[in-house]
Design a protein around this nucleic acid. Sequence first.
DNA 1: ATGTCCACAACATGTGGA
Length: 289
Amino acid sequence: MRLATWNVNSAKQRLPRLLPWLDERQPDVVCLQETKLADDAFLALFSEELAARGYEVAAHGEAQWNGVAILSKAGLEDVVPGLPDGPGFPHQEARAVWATCGGLRIASVYVPNGREPDSDHYAYKLDWLARLRDIVASGDPATTVVLGDINIAPTDADVFDPAAYAGHTHVTEPERSALADLQAIGLHDVVRDRWPTERVFSYWDYRAGMFHKDLGMRIDLVLAGDAVADRVQAAWIDRKARKGKGPSDHAPVMVDLDEAPDGDIGPMVPPPSAPAARPGTAKLPQSKD
DNA sequence: ATGTCCACAACATGTGGA
């Protein structure tokens, strides 16, 4: 099973990149952030194209800002929008959506930016992360995967130049501590685990040729519970999606999982309602001519 | 100093957010 997360910076503007990317990469579960569309507009934009590719959709958005979604070819059950009992600014924003896909509890999250350290928005960011941690802890962390734009660089190795970010959000100790508290439940940063010493970024500012100079940050993460982290076959950043005409400023993060070890979860198993094959009824593919 | 993009209001370009 292939999982992906991508901050698309407007689903409407990114559609010419999003559909070919789905066709090329064939992810089973896709978490999107910054869709910037209300749910009806999101579905009107491309629900037909998604259905044609076999995706079910859980969209949780608002006009203009924020907005998250989960696309799944591995089932989509128990959808929950937002952070139940989570903080607002001042009202709750469309920054999280949850669903169960192929036996995994998936969260697509767009963590508040924080704007300036010690601002109200920064306090909101820390509160939001604490509530996210509590919700994951109250479920089954081992089979949970939190994917999205976390808006925190976990360590100084995750920014092109720590000095350039001194005094800015994304690298402060309270933010990193809040992320560490979330991971302490048992969530693994699977891309860093796979590439422990490499220069790996997921976001490059549009300005000043930052991408072409590879001056970026790693702020989009896949945080996988123990049982999921044990199945990771590959984990990488899809830098190709940041190149070319009309890219997002973020690249997708991709994770491939081996089949579940006991084979009792995952998209390859027919649902309980599927009729059992009876002798004499199975057919081989027929030639079309 | 900002080598940018996006959404909105509104129709030219300014503003706020990232």
